[in-house]
Nucleic acid binder design. Structure first.
Lengths: 335, 335
DNA sequence: ATCGTTGTCGGGAACGTTACCAAAAAGGCT
DNA sequence: AGCCTTTTTGGTAACGTTCCCGACAACGAT
């Protein structure tokens, strides 16, 4: 069973395709009776306009593309839910892609999206992405772009991020106030923007409380599965921290597991606080203190910005970075 | 900056579009020198064929669609990773959609996918889906379909599922062997196929060990956020179970939280085992026993089946259901 | 010299849709 | 009666690509 087209309708009703087309979109310049005839027949035959033909003609698709490193990451899947909520409301479809932290995949995804004529792109950069030519290129092609969470200073676009500095500051300060002195910070590769923001927050808290910054207590950790475990073991052995502040979902879990595997008591020997969106943080042993990012709201805000520029409701000349507050959830792991 | 087309190349090189087209796809009947000329110019100008035009012409897109209830569910995001792994290898893009457990959204997603001429669809049914006309319709249109995990008996298609019966059987049996008598089963809405499979496994284990099946110990629970909590509270109060076996990620977490909130000791008072793909099961308090489904492998297998039928490497006349073994991971919550 | 063959290319239609330009009929105006 | 609007419809090009068909030259064979 093939899909019915405007031509089929035209033939069946002895009309021209242009008449049918206009009737279907309710043009004023068409006889009400003809219009009714066409609409009824279309309904009966379950006619749906071919979106591909429309895209080819109009150079748009009524869909926006989203690229995230990993949907298995709770933060990103929640952000996507925020994006979908507003996009769906405003009549846009959302096409989801994963870069799997690979720069190559990210490029390929971008290629595919612009080829498919998405009306805009929302992206959170992969951990390997060090240059952003692929992004400025689609901007040159006129594709609206909003970067969220994993942003880069090198790209001029609207951006939405959590207040990483503030979150990290509060987390570190809390550890300090509970009497910890050797506060380690385990974080993502240093080329990520969020990494630096969080590091700065951490440093600021130390400085405020007169604790000298000790480079040896900071570890950058890539995305390889076994890497985190090794990094944390080495850190524990050589630096003997009395607190750990981690910078992401993934790292929090890996570190948490590693510390427990070593038989170190949390929070007695080492206090722990993570920057994460885990929904199970309160069910862990012990319950994990977290800095939570408003993932859904970040997605929602980013999508709104994007759709506003697409629909020309936003001044495209001025770009803007929206920062959304984080929230600190203290539980027993950092007591 | 607009994308360059075959016409542009033709004009620039004083050739016809047909010649350029053939040169680009390396047709034998084209002068090697002309071919070289065209290819070099195309490369220089960064030419990429317009996939939309191709789709319109060829009625296909080199993309497959995936519809899952919720990507925030670990099982599904892992399954998607399995799907992407094989699709990427075989030159197909993967378009991800969420039904959010809504039948309407599922229909709308299907519509969008066939409109966009995906070459095949992988779907895991929403919790609200009771009839599958939207699926048989796309089959009639010739779109290959594979259903995975959340399958339905009413649709005739290739299917991939975990061995739910076996997993449930082993879980229940383990609880029985550890001396539990009143084993509750909290599960998803009864119209889901997996629900029944797991229920049957649970029943079979009871029967094997001479424990009469008690309907009051079984609870079906929808997808509303607060529902699980109420259901489990009511169950605990009225039935006093000494063990709970839950049928999904979501339910396991909600129940786990509810039981702990009530101050009931796990596993002392109530043993607990979940059917889940949580990556943090071993970090919970106490570590959670689970029946894990090979999500990645399920996705991989389903995608392979789909791509095989798309590429005509598979006999489309015979349909098949592949069942993949589950694995039971015993931890302290069920001691 | 004529013919068929081979190699190389261009023209046009088609995929489904919309937009522009005509065209025909009907009606109103002077 | 002649002309100009208005209403309603049809024809065609265009979006980017491929594919079928035909054209034309060069070439060897008869």
């Amino acid at each position: 069973m093939e899909a019915i087209t405007i031509k089929d309708i035209a033939k069946a009703l002895n009309l021209s395709t242009s008449t049918v087309s206009r009737a279907l979109r309710g043009s004023y310049e068409i006889n009400p009776e003809t219009k009714k005839l066409v609409l009824e027949y279309a309904k009966k035959m379950n006619y749906h306009p071919n979106p591909i033909a429309l895209s080819l003609k109009e150079n748009r698709s009524r869909a926006i593309g989203v690229i995230v490193p990993e949907i298995a990451n709770n933060f990103f899947s929640q952000a996507i839910n925020g994006i979908e909520a507003v996009a769906y409301d405003r009549g846009y479809h959302v096409v989801i892609f994963q870069s799997h932290e690979s720069y190559e995949r990210e490029r390929s995804n971008i290629q595919h999206l612009v080829g498919r004529k998405v009306d805009g792109v929302l992206i959170s950069l992969s951990g390997q992405t060090t240059e952003v030519n692929h992004l400025s290129e689609i901007q040159k092609r006129g594709v609206p772009l909003v970067v969220f969470d994993r942003i880069s200073n090198e790209i001029e676009a609207n951006k939405v991020i959590a207040d990483n500095f503030q979150g990290a500051f509060e987390a570190a300060e809390h550890l300090i106030l509970s009497g910890r002195k050797r506060i380690a910070h385990i974080t993502s590769p240093s080329l990520l923007y969020t990494t630096n923001e969080r590091l700065e927050g951490y440093k600021a808290a130390l400085e405020k409380h007169g604790i000298p910054f000790n480079e040896n207590l900071v570890r950058y950790c890539g995305f390889a599965p076994e890497e985190a475990r090794e990094v944390i073991f080495e850190l524990l052995d050589t630096q003997k921290p009395d607190a750990i502040f981690t910078a992401s979902d993934r790292l929090a879990l890996d570190c948490f597991a590693a510390v427990k595997a070593k038989g170190i008591d949390i929070p007695e020997q080492v206090a722990f606080i993570g920057f994460t969106n885990l929904q199970v943080a309160h069910l862990l042993d012990p319950p994990l203190s977290t800095v939570v990012q408003p993932a859904f709201e970040i997605g929602k805000t980013a999508a709104e910005m994007l759709l506003d520029t697409i629909d020309n409701k936003r001044n495209t000349a001025t770009i803007k970075t929206i920062k959304i507050p984080t929230e600190v959830n203290l539980r027993t792991s950092s007591d």
